[in-house]
Design a protein around this nucleic acid. Structure first.
Lengths: 192, 192, 192, 192
DNA sequence: CATGAATGAGACTTCATTCAT
DNA sequence: CATGAATGAAGTCTCATTCAT
C-alpha cells in the first residue's frame, strides 16, 4: 500500500533539506565549480541520480541554497514588522547578523563567493534575490534619518561596507577577532 | 642574423605578459574554473599549445598572475624602504591602493574570489603569497603605535577590514561611491 | 464482497490496454528510444512502478503493442477462413487495410519505424511476428494465380510494395491524398 | 613548425568524412538513439572527444550526414540544368536513383528512419532539407505534363510513392528483388 | 494492486594537456 | 617557438528498473 501524499511530501522535504545541507558544505569548501555532484551525493549518502529528483540541475541546487539563505537573513526583520527600528532593535539586529555569520559560516562563504562571480547566476536572478532585503535597507536608512545623521543613505552604505569587511575577513580567516571588531563597530554607533 | 639571447628573453617575457593579461581578463570575468585554456588562447590570439610553453599548467598561470599582483601592491612600499611611515606617506599609500583597485579592477576581483576559495591554492602557497606584504603590515602597525593609538594591532586590523569592505563593494557593484567612502575613511584617520 | 477472479482478470486487461494505449501514443510520437517510462506513466495517469506489474520491461511493452497490432491486421482474414479470396473480397480487404491505416495512424507509424530499425527486436522475434500474416500472403498469391497473372508471386510483391509506399507517404505527410492514390491502385487491379 | 592552414584544412575534411562514414554505419544499423558516441568513436578509431572537435553535438553529426545525403541525391540533376527532362533522361535518372540506393543502403536506411521520427529534427530543419529537391520535383512534373499525362502532379506523386515502396522494401529485406520490380516500374512509364 | 523515492549504469559533453609536424 | 588535432579522464544528467511501504 503506498504512502499517503502527505507522507511523501514530508519525506521529500526532509531529503531535500538533507541534500542541500550536504551541498552547502561542499560548495562552500571547494567552490561551486570545483564541487561535483558525486561529492555532494557521497556526502549526503545518496545516489547521484537522486539529486535530480529534487533539483533541476547543479545550478538550481545552488540557487535553492542561496535563496533560503536570503530568507533566513531577513527573517528577524519580518518578525517585527511595524516598519520602525528603535535604537535597541538596531543593535540587536546587528548582533543577530554577526551571530548568524558565526553560526552559518558555510552559507556566508558560499554567498560571498557567488557574489564575486557574477556569471554563476544571471544578473536577473541576482536582482531577484537582492530584492528580498530591500525593505530591510529602507528601514535602516530610515533609522539613520531619525537618528539625525546628515546623510543617512551614505551612513547605511558605510555600515554595510564595514560589515562586509568584517564578515569577509572572518570567513577567510577563522582566527579573525570578529567579536572585538564588531564591538568596536557597535560602539561607533551606539556609545557616545 | 640570429637574435641575441637577451632579445629572446625580452620576447619571451612580453609574450608571457600578453598571455597573462588575457588570462586575467577571462579569469576575473568567468572565475577560474569556468575559464578554459581555449578561451584564454583565443583572447590572447595564440594557439592553445603555446600557453604550455610558458606555463606549467592552468593553475600555474593563475599563480603567476596572482603573484605579480601581490608584487604590484607592495611595490610602493618597496620604493620607500626606510621602514618608517610618516602620516603623509600613510595617506598617500591608502590613496594609492584604492587608485590601484580602480585601475586594475579585474586583478582585484580575481584576487578576492581566489581568496574566498582556499582550495584553488594550497594553504602553503597562500601563506607564501601573504608573506610578501608582511613588512607592510609591520610598518603600518608601527605607524599606529607612533601615532598614539592604544591598540595599534587592532587599529591596523580595522583599517584592513574597512578597506576590504570598500573594495569588495566596489568590485561587486560598479556604481559604488568608492571615492566618497574612501574620503570618509581618510577623514577618520587624518582629520581631527 | 471480494471480486471474483474473472472480475480481476477483466480489470487487469483493461488497465493493461490503457497503458498500452498511452505507450503507443508516446512511442509513435517520439520513437521508442526517446520515449521514457515516466512519459508513458504520466500519459496513462499511473505510477511508473505500476507499469512493471503488467509488462516485464519497456521492450516487452513495445512487443505487446506490436503483437496486438499484427493480430488486428490479420483479423479480417481470420473471419473468412475458407482459404479462397474472391475478387470482391480482395477489393474489400485492400480497402479495409487502408481504412485501418487512417484510423490507427499511430500504430502504423510505430510499426514502420520499428521495422526500419531491426535492432529494436531480434531477428527471431520479427520472424515470429511476420509469421502471423503468412497465410494472408499465400491466399493473395493464390488469388493472383487464379486471376491469371503470369507471375503471381511478383504481383503480390508489387501490390505489397505499392501499398507500403502509400502508407509510408501518408504516415510522414498527413496531407497525402491517400484516398485518391488508393483508388488509382484499385483501378489497376479491378477495372479494365 | 606547424602545418600550413591548408594542410590543417585538408586533415580536417578527411577526418570529418571519416567520422561521418563511421557514424552513418552505426546510425543506420542501430538507429540514432540507440547509437552512442562511444560506438561511433570506436568504429572510426578515434577518441570520443575528437568527434566534438568536428561536430557540435550528436544531433549535428546526424544533420551533417543527412544533409550531404540530400546533396548527393540531387547531384545528377544539377549536372544537367537546362531544366527540361527528355524521356531518356527520366529513365536514366530513375535508374540512377535506384543505383544509389543499392550503393548507399546505409544512408537510405538512415534517411527513412529519420523521416519516420519527426522529433529527431525540428519541422523547420526537415523543410530546409526537403527544399533541396524541390527543383527536381518541378522538373519531373513538367516532364509528365509534356508527356501528356492528364494529371501530372498526381502522376509524380504515384511515381514517388511507388519508389518509396520499392526502396523501403529493399532496405528492410536485403533479398528483395529490387531490379525486377524496378524494371516493372520502368516498363509502366516507358514501354507501350 | 499502487506509489514514487531510490539506485546506478551509462549516455553526452567538456577540457586540460600532449605531441607530431 | 608555434600550431591545433588528438586524447581520455571526469563531469553533468537521464532513465529503466527495483522496492519499501
Amino acid at each position: 500500500m503506498p504512502r499517503t501524499r502527505q507522507q511523501y511530501e514530508e519525506l521529500r522535504r526532509e531529503k531535500m533539506q538533507h541534500i542541500m545541507d550536504a551541498a552547502l558544505e561542499i560548495f562552500s569548501t571547494k567552490g561551486f565549480h570545483a564541487s561535483t555532484i558525486a561529492d555532494i551525493a557521497q556526502k549526503a549518502g545518496v545516489a547521484k541520480g537522486l539529486i535530480y529528483n529534487y533539483f533541476k540541475s547543479k545550478e538550481d541546487l545552488l540557487y535553492q541554497i542561496i535563496s533560503r539563505f536570503f530568507e533566513a537573513i531577513v527573517e528577524k526583520f519580518d518578525e517585527n514588522n511595524n516598519g520602525v527600528l528603535t535604537s535597541e532593535e538596531m543593535r540587536l539586529y546587528i548582533n543577530d547578523i554577526f551571530g548568524k555569520v558565526v553560526k552559518n559560516r558555510s552559507s556566508w562563504k558560499l554567498y560571498f563567493s557567488v557574489m564575486l562571480q557574477p556569471n554563476v547566476f544571471s544578473r536577473e536572478i541576482i536582482e531577484k534575490l537582492e530584492h528580498k532585503y530591500m525593505p530591510m535597507v529602507t528601514m535602516m536608512i530610515e533609522y539613520f534619518r531619525r537618528a539625525g545623521y546628515p546623510n543617512p543613505e551614505m551612513e547605511y552604505q558605510i555600515l554595510h561596507t564595514i560589515s562586509d569587511g568584517i564578515v569577509i575577513n572572518y570567513l577567510v580567516n577563522e582566527n579573525f577577532p570578529l567579536e572585538e571588531i564588531k564591538n568596536e563597530l557597535l560602539r561607533r554607533y551606539f556609545d557616545q
